[in-house]
């Protein structure tokens, strides 16, 4: 890096003469070493997936989850330093609960992304702290139903006004990615971590903006993309961890939940088949699968 020896990279919050904050860029390097994480936003829900690298044979398979729930309707997955990711999730939970205590309802995904973006950005402003070593993908579902005030009693009129307006569009999926600089955007498909380039290339092929992909197919695509992204990191074993949030009519009823075991395994089988089809020379499927079935 050009910064080596110049001294402008030693303290956070200090700009280099050409306007860069090197500590933030180094934080991005930490992210680039982390297991790949992806998020896919469909019309009827959001899928999160992460390539969890097995760092020790002594770790219990399926334990040490990397995707966390915030409130009931949001999931967060991070690539980079796991402890930073956990602190980030803890902050997200506090934000969601503080929103609830004031407004008596679930925090909108966009508002949560905004608050977390501001939080992460603050860690680029002070020399006494270091930036977050994670890029986090935030997926959730804003309820499309008529929102009640928490603890509400009474129900208003039986018909007509005083409830949800017929045909009024509201709620829906939300997917955001927040980087160590505090920068965040809303995405149709997001990828971060070591295999992000391959994953992004795959996400772009899906034409997510047309919103034709169903949530179930998105689960399979997410699994496949993690497997594709793992191709460049084959010396390490991994576990695939996936979660989803569907619409109220869908399988999770607007809640963030783990993808059910059967569906996850089906998606993994399909992912391995797709990889074999792509490349005949490849060894048969990742060993990660055997781990899962223990």
């Amino acid at each position: 890096m050009t910064s080596i020896g110049t001294g402008y990279d030693l303290s956070n919050s200090v700009f280099s003469p050409d306007g860069r904050n090197f500590q933030v860029e180094y934080a991005v390097k930490a992210v680039e070493n982390g297991g790949t994480a992806v998020g896919i936003r469909c019309k009827d829900g959001v899928v999160l997936a992460v390539e969890k690298i097995i760092t020790s044979k002594l770790l219990k398979p399926g334990a040490n989850r990397r995707i966390s729930t915030v409130d009931r309707h949001v999931g967060i997955v991070s690539a980079g330093l796991a402890p930073d990711g956990r602190h980030f999730v803890s902050r997200a939970r506090d934000e969601a609960s503080s929103w609830r205590s004031v407004y008596k309802g679930p925090i909108p995904i966009s508002a949560l992304a905004n608050r977390l973006g501001s939080y992460v950005q603050a860690y680029t402003l002070y020399s006494s702290v270091r930036p977050f070593g994670v890029t986090s993908i935030l997926g959730g579902w804003d309820s499309e139903a008529e929102l009640a005030v928490d603890g509400q009693v009474g129900s208003g009129p039986q018909s007509g006004a005083g409830g949800k307006v017929k045909g009024a569009k509201s709620g829906g999926p939300g997917l955001y990615m927040i980087e160590p600089s505090g920068l965040y955007w809303g995405y149709y498909g997001a990828a971060t971590g070591k295999g992000r380039q391959a994953a992004k290339a795959e996400l772009e092929k899906l034409d997510l903006a047309s919103e034709k992909l169903s949530l179930h197919d998105a689960v399979k695509e997410a699994a496949r993309i993690i497997y594709v992204a793992h191709e460049d990191n084959k010396d390490k074993e991994f576990e695939l961890e996936m979660s989803w949030i569907s619409s109220l009519e869908g399988p999770t009823k607007g809640r963030h939940e783990e993808v059910p075991k059967e569906l996850l395994e089906e998606a993994e089988r399909a992912a391995r088949r797709a990889l074999e089809g792509d490349d005949e020379d490849e060894e048969e499927g990742a060993k990660g699968n055997e781990q899962m079935e223990e």
Partner: peptide, 10 residues
């Protein structure tokens, strides 16, 4: 509001 129409709370 456009989403919920009219509402009355006491």
């Amino acid at each position: 509001d456009p989403r919920h129409g009219g509402q009355v709370y006491s």
